[in-house]
Design a protein around this nucleic acid. Structure first.
Lengths: 359, 359
DNA sequence: AGTTGAACTGCAAACGTTGTCAGTTACACC
DNA sequence: GGTGTAACTGACAACGTTTGCAGTTCAACT
């Protein structure tokens, strides 16, 4: 903990005031843009100069206390070594930073270590202590935890990915933002069909992941309608990792009949799939078309550049921040309006897809 | 800004006290672990229960004000869309989160938009308003800005990458943490020499980047000593991006004589180089060995897995947080001890390097 | 029953800033 | 010189919590 003697060294507003033989009020006024016009110019200059010289900065505690709240929100992330590597967290967070900066809000990022027995809501409470709102971006919650969250007394936004698959977004009782996985997956599957592919495989994420489930559903919906439902040997599930892509495609290629196109549940899986295909002597996109899901930075930097579904994570973050700020501003408390925001995902066509090879 | 009526809804310590006909002091004591033993068990239970029921959480402002400081630090990052994508920021930040969590400090991440004319120190001041310390992780500073920072009155740590190339780390006048680029680069170059490579090219980052300069120096030092200084056509500089790798290797392969190994200034450049080599019909590592610098998550996930220099960014972050916490705890102010911490970088040998081809 | 000490409790004073309110000054105008 | 108005100023009371201090209770001893 910061020592308390640290504070002793601070020159406060009264110190400045007494040196200048002015009242503290004047110093306060002179130093804040909103009220600066209230003090005579020459005096203001004196004050500002001295404040500058003394390296004055207002005591945050006092300011927060006085003003009742501070313009800051906390983002709760899992305490995981690699979270920033993931497209999802990285881009969402940077979007949050942007959106918050645009409103001159501060962003606090807290890691949440969840242990099964611990008081989840209490921990969250603790984390969000010094902020006006909370965006939950960490591991999927249990249904019971979502219920606990309903009466959380500060502005709170959940990401859809954190909502357990069993709960519909509309029933969460808490504002939820998410990407329209269904529509994105449908678009990807449709593209492959249009390119003439009929034998299409699926490389999906873990079956416990809401995102993976929704994407799978979107793919299958379109393929079913076209009469191209993949056989079970053409559906492979694993972690959201390159290794899953490599393993999955190896498994598919071991079968007698092989797909000419693959839908993946993430870019990373797609990279692994391209790599695995190459290792097996297949060229992408000539021999096999592959679409990812995310449109992370690598999608455009790798070769072949990846055709993929763009997750509008920045928009998502913008929306989440917007909801928080709005809720914080809503003076009275006219009850929670259930807010569900699904952001449209769109397909980005690059090099990893091509018309289906003849035969 | 959060509305002020928001606060009205809060049940404070006095509210609890009056409902229970106890003094606020008792409530305060009962609710904080440090002082809980001072209140009789039955009473404490009453208080804790009611606090729980009312979803009480202490007003952060008042607490901070009273205690003089709060256990939190701010990390200043650039307001850039892709920062989290970069290995550097991502891993450093996640390290910071870890280190802070271990000390139960909070981390606030602020984006700093730097405009040339603006008051840099003031902006920083503003950003770190509510925190006890600052880690500067954003764009390289100008020499004048570093000078301004010397008398920053709160614990502050700079990353070496942010220090302009003109200033020695020892002269910054501010604690600096960084990676020992020199030693890392030397190790990489030595490895290639040991593998029998003599024709070695360099794909470097921008000549304004301190990191790139130091890495280049490390490479050249070792190569010079072995009598293998690359000709100027074998040294290519660009952004820290895959495209630089692709462009650079294309340029080198256009020359009559080609290198058998390449040292890169970052993993990303190395990925581009591998890709470019492949596009030109060369296999990595059989025809050309390539080493990166960073050891980001992709280094191990791509094929061939990248031989690279591991940046101990988590250690770096740990050290930075440690310095901040220590400085915050140092009760008196026995002057700034100039702290320079260079963390050792070590080489990780994977698949992208091999003994030099004969001839 | 009186004494002692430990365990517990409440009062009141901070912490540093800001907004309200009631002045006080300065200045132009009659 | 008086009046009216606008511009400026200072005193003071919050904001909600923590903590030093001075009690008060209570059980265990003489």
């Amino acid at each position: 903990m910061p020592s308390r003697s640290h504070r002793k060294s601070r020159a406060g507003i009264v110190e400045i005031a007494s040196q200048l033989r002015v009242s503290p009020s004047m110093v306060s006024r002179a130093l804040r843009p909103e009220t600066a016009h209230l003090v005579r110019a020459d005096r203001r200059k004196l004050i500002v100069d001295l404040a500058e010289k003394l390296h004055f900065s207002p005591n945050p505690g006092a300011r927060i206390l006085r003003q009742g709240a501070n313009a800051s929100l906390a983002v709760v992330v899992p305490l995981d070594e690699n979270i920033f590597f993931s497209e999802f967290y990285g881009r969402f967070l940077s979007g949050t930073l942007h959106a918050a900066a645009a409103r001159s809000w501060d962003v606090q990022i807290c890691a949440l270590r969840r242990t099964p027995g611990s008081d989840f809501r209490g921990a969250l409470q603790q984390l969000g202590l010094a902020t006006s709102g909370l965006i939950y971006l960490a591991e999927p919650l249990a249904a019971a935890e979502v219920r606990q969250l309903r009466d959380y007394r500060r502005p709170l936004v959940l990401t859809k990915s954190a909502l357990p698959p069993g709960i519909a977004v509309g029933d969460a009782g808490v504002p939820v933002v998410g990407v329209d996985n269904l529509e994105g997956a449908r678009a990807a599957a449709s593209l492959l069909l249009q390119l003439g592919h009929r034998r299409i495989g699926l490389l999906m994420g873990p079956p416990t992941s809401r995102d993976s489930i929704e994407r799978r559903q979107g793919y299958l919906e379109v393929l079913d309608r076209a009469g191209c439902r993949p056989s079970s040997g053409w559906i492979y599930e694993g972690a959201f990792s390159a290794q899953t892509g490599r393993d999955g495609i190896a498994a598919m290629l071991a079968k007698p009949d092989r797909p000419t196109a693959i839908c993946c549940a993430s870019d990373e899986i797609a990279f692994g799939a391209i790599d695995g295909a190459r290792a097996a002597g297949l060229r992408c996109p000539e021999d096999i078309s592959i679409v990812g899901f995310d449109d992370g930075p690598w999608a455009n930097a790798c070769r072949p550049a990846l055709t993929t579904v763009r997750q509008p994570l920045a928009d998502l973050a913008e929306r989440a921040v917007g909801l928080i700020v709005e809720a914080a501003n809503r003076a009275g408390r006219p009850g929670y309006v259930q807010q569900v925001s699904e952001m449209p995902a769109s397909i980005v066509i690059r090099e990893s897809t091509q018309v289906a090879p003849a035969g």
